[in-house]
Design a protein around this nucleic acid. Structure first.
Lengths: 236, 236
DNA sequence: CCCCAAAATTGATCTGGGTCAACCGGCTTT
DNA sequence: AAAGCCGGTTGACCCAGATCAATTTTGGGG
């Protein structure tokens, strides 16, 4: 996968930004936003490209503006655990060691708002509300991480898949509105690596759910025919 | 387990506090510390007592001063996932929903420094450095959470146990200094629920490691006879 | 010191999900 | 339009770790 990074001339305005309301920048007022605009640079990545890698020195932070990314960690022997999928509005790259602690690559075309670390750090410096916002996002992610630990450690394959479908749908609600048709831009392998399963088990579980009339497997996603049943399967 | 909470008269001084250097309060100067002292109240819990429960309205934050706690989430059918063990210096209770997102109880006797939510929130309000410190702790925890996801989703029982022993030892280093004798105050069930295994598998893995001369099971813990071998087992 | 309950270990057996392998179908390349 | 490829599905079989079932060990209280 050869990098085909495109850097647009930075004529975008934050005020027009699609993720203005949900992203870190939601904590900025009009004046700050003007200054903030000069800090970030829109960058495009095409499908499969890596935005940053685990252990890389952190030189930038990223605000995902458009598209989907997979965030993952690799073991030396190639086993992979996807620790999350990023959606528009997600803020990536915060760490305390100066190095990224997971890798991130694009699933389909992606647009990010990239901030160089130092100027961004300076901008935050004395802006309590922005730091608060970042803190809030971190805590929110921490909760998600803990929920996911429960899923990985204590749930069966069926429960994992059901919980994944519901969780993913839920995340899409705030972006595209509620729908029982759930697009799944990521591959079966991605789903497997997110749920701590194999690709075969994910595939089999999907077909099982379909045979039971609970979902329908459609091109590029699934359709929830019986959301209540899926919720029952996901247990809790 | 009947609560036997003891609240000491609040004559403790933060400046004498055992966790002064590592806890949130490490970001406070002498003057602030004086004010901070009046905010917190030392509370003792005895073994097995619950400090707070998942879904409870958050009324306080806690700074663990002495002892060990297990932090866990339960499924409705009783399955439990321990999402972490807390050690002195750890700060507990931050959340964004107003409710705790996991339960916490004492493993052995515990002392915490308890802060009522509202005054603590007011104290933070305009203290950027304290918020920064809290943010740093949250990000650190997020990294640990992600590492743990890899363990839960992608590692074998042997690797899980080996990684746990090393990780736990590592955490104790900064508190009690380095040692190949690793105290394990938590039960086998706790370890199992932390690693996403059963108690039997944990027990068997310990005995297997002991048979291979890699560890020795001692009273209240284990001794690492061959740390290098354990590291090799933990892989990655 | 003895008793009892809880924790831990050990053994026998079972099974959910992994592994291995074949196959299918839609896209791209030529 | 044939060939090849890649992602996904399906089937057959296997095994790591769960489950079930005894013991054994530990620890606290009288």
């Amino acid at each position: 996968m050869k990098p085909v990074v495109t850097i647009e001339p930075n004529w975008q305005l934050c005020s027009d930004c699609a993720v203005r309301a949900s992203a870190v920048c939601s904590s900025l007022d009009a004046v700050e936003l003007r200054e903030f605009e000069h800090l970030g640079r829109r960058v495009h990545f095409s499908s499969g490209e890596t935005v940053f890698s685990e252990e890389d020195i952190t030189t930038s932070f990223y605000n995902l503006v458009e598209g989907v990314m997979r965030l993952y960690k690799l073991l030396t022997d190639g086993r992979r655990q996807i620790v999350g999928f990023a959606l528009p509005g997600d803020f990536l790259g915060m760490n305390v060691s100066g190095r990224h602690n997971f890798s991130a690559d694009a699933i389909g075309a992606v647009t990010v708002c990239q901030f160089a670390k130092a100027p961004f750090g300076r901008f935050i410096e004395d802006r309590l509300h922005l730091l608060r916002r970042i803190n809030e996002l971190a805590i929110r992610e921490l909760n998600q991480a803990r929920d996911h630990m429960v899923l990985l450690g204590r749930r069966s394959a069926d429960e994992k898949v059901a919980a994944f479908l519901l969780g993913w749908r839920e995340r899409l609600v705030s972006l595209k509105g509620a729908s029982d048709t759930v697009p799944l831009p990521m591959s079966r392998q991605d789903i497997a690596d997110y749920l701590g399963l194999t690709i075969e088990t994910v595939s089999r579980t999907f077909t099982k759910l379909e045979r039971h009339g609970v979902i329908e497997i459609i091109h590029g996603g699934i359709s929830l025919l019986d959301p209540a049943k899926v919720e029952a399967l996901a247990a809790a």
